[in-house]
Design a protein around this nucleic acid. Structure first.
Lengths: 350, 350
DNA sequence: CTGAAAGCGCTAACAT
DNA sequence: ATGTTAGCGCTTTCAG
């Protein structure tokens, strides 16, 4: 497959004319355009995006860093991002951190070398010094996904309002008579973890109660972390009558533990989760969640990035997106909060 | 951030010497290496991968085309791929087709322009003529994910053995007394759809039965397609007593429909699915599946690609990966008394 | 062992 | 309106 020179020779024109036709420059004669198009066809010519990128100083590629694409939350965000970016002719390169903060920094460095035009980040640890270090040197538009990096205001961000959502479910549980409500959530190194904890506390304090003894925080957003945390919290005496999970993979772990222990969701222990992942609505009984529109989150992030890509002078912006509580059976069917089960029973069909 | 010339000037050496140090050439004096490294440090120099790619004719980037990253199946495959590719310093650019075959072809074209070094494809339609057309012109190593393209032997492939797996679950259901077993699966335009149908038929024929009247095939691997197909198949008289779903998103649709219709999984209708996605094992009752190691599938695909990247002369290879049936309660509790609590049944290995 | 110079394929500035 | 030329930043001959 030849280059632009071959096409030019074939059409009997200059290479620059081929470029002009390809990139829709004005003032091109119909004759030239036709000859060039024919030659492009004849040579099966495909412009080399690498060469073009080198010359233009722009790659039309965005780097995306998330912890784990298997997490449906990130998968949906990435899909939202992709849809919007692609409309504008951008592609993306994806890097996983698997929850490792150093991996995040390394990914950013390598994406920078690949000359991506912008970055969308959901870092594993906002507080890592090396992160601030590399970001502050970076001359690239950055959008943070539900993250806040202290001391760095150059980035745009899309933030979800976790606090009021979690405060509401927590409050609903307390108002329904639950006295021992546990929170299993992500660490404070990340905004959602902090905000959810804040919302949780808020609900208690608004009622003159103190939640601290039943809070369990786990750093890892993983099934195992949720499983372990649930084992710990459910072994306490008196046992909590309700659990709120803050990360969707942890929810899976909590469900597993409850199955192991023969505890029925919504009967023996009320359960609420964050993010309306498929498992939440399909579980029997369906699980109450603090939901948000993840695809929209991705789209908004893309918009934020595109606006700065189009005009680098535009200042960074922060967008807040709402959450809303979807109340389902898992927090509504509790019979006798203090009564333990005698026999293991499968969750009921609705 | 300066280029290699700045570093060279700073170190008092030639640009080519900087390259040599960076790329680990032999026969470099300690003095030169030290001076260059110091200059690199001082300039905070990061080599430009775009320029390097243009010169070398290689980008260390792989193009991956899948229908939908939100599908946990693809998410896990991509994760497996990524892990392995990254070990060898490769990155990937991801394109979604959303099930549109033309989108696949377009993505391949654009990835080719970006000069990816190889391609990993899970196309939406193997039979599309434009696909064969573009692939046969392509001078790039390609690995197919559970796909076979007739008339094109240049590609390596990783194939899952769906047929025996589906034949086994189907047979198990028939042997358990089910006479009306329905298949809700993907179209024949894609290998898994064909293989699953073949396995399904195989089980019937081995027993002197004919399955055709209860087969439902839907083209789309989507929740809605599964929902619609389940509505159709469950409205037949007599109603099927068992359903096998062939695509994991369709499973979700089938579950929704059954909830709508008030049909209990495993009680009113036995249910088996393909691929052990989280929802299958967590559902109540847990759902029997034809499982496979998706992460391994990704890793094997990466290996296949890397071996051809390392030596383009190597011939394409095809790898077969096994499936195995995980029998769970959804196919074992049919006819059980409605009242009593159901104890989860331990998965049986074949 | 190191330097000088050419060029990957494209595009933008300058010419006509 | 189109052609000519230089050069993006790096790597690779080719010299020395």
């Amino acid at each position: 497959m030849g280059g632009i020179r071959d096409v030019a020779r074939h059409a009997g024109v200059a290479p620059s004319s081929v470029t002009r036709v390809l990139n829709g420059y004005p003032n091109i004669s119909e004759d030239l355009r036709a000859r060039v198009m024919a030659a492009i066809e004849a040579c099966d010519y495909k412009p080399d995006a690498v060469a073009s990128g080198l010359r233009r100083g722009v790659t039309r590629t965005i780097g995306i860093v998330v912890s784990d694409i298997v997490n449906p939350l990130f998968a949906e965000i990435v899909e939202g991002l992709e849809e919007r970016l692609r409309e504008d002719g951008y592609w993306f390169v994806l890097a996983h951190s698997h929850g490792d903060p150093e991996h995040d920094v390394e990914s950013i460095r390598l994406l920078q070398q690949r000359r991506v035009d912008g970055l969308v980040l959901s870092v594993a640890d906002e507080t890592q010094p090396a992160l601030l270090d590399i970001l502050s040197r970076l001359r690239l538009p950055v959008v943070l996904l539900d993250r806040e990096i202290e001391g760095w205001t150059e980035a745009s961000a899309v933030l979800s309002d976790h606090r009021p959502g979690v405060a509401q479910v927590t409050g609903d549980l307390l108002d329904a008579g639950h006295t021992r409500v546990a929170l299993i959530s992500g660490s404070a190194e990340t905004r959602p973890g902090r905000e959810r904890l804040a919302g949780f506390r808020e609900a208690f304090m608004a009622r003159g109660l103190s939640p601290d003894s039943d809070i369990v925080q786990t750093g890892a957003m993983s099934v195992r972390a949720g499983q372990d945390a649930a084992r710990e919290v459910l072994s306490r005496h008196p046992r909590p009558t309700a659990i709120i999970t803050g990360a969707n993979l942890q929810l899976v772990g909590v469900l597993k533990t409850m199955q192991e222990l023969g505890l029925r969701v919504g009967k023996d222990v009320a359960l609420a989760a964050c993010d309306d992942v498929p498992i939440a609505s399909l579980y029997a009984p369906p699980i109450t969640v603090v939901a948000r529109d993840t695809r929209q989150l991705g789209r908004e992030a893309a918009d934020l990035l595109l606006e700065r890509l189009g005009d680098p002078a535009r200042p960074a912006r922060t967008i807040h997106l709402p959450t809303h509580v979807l109340t389902r059976a898992s927090t509504q069917t509790l019979g006798a909060p203090e009564a333990g089960p005698t026999t293991p029973v499968a969750p009921q069909q609705p």
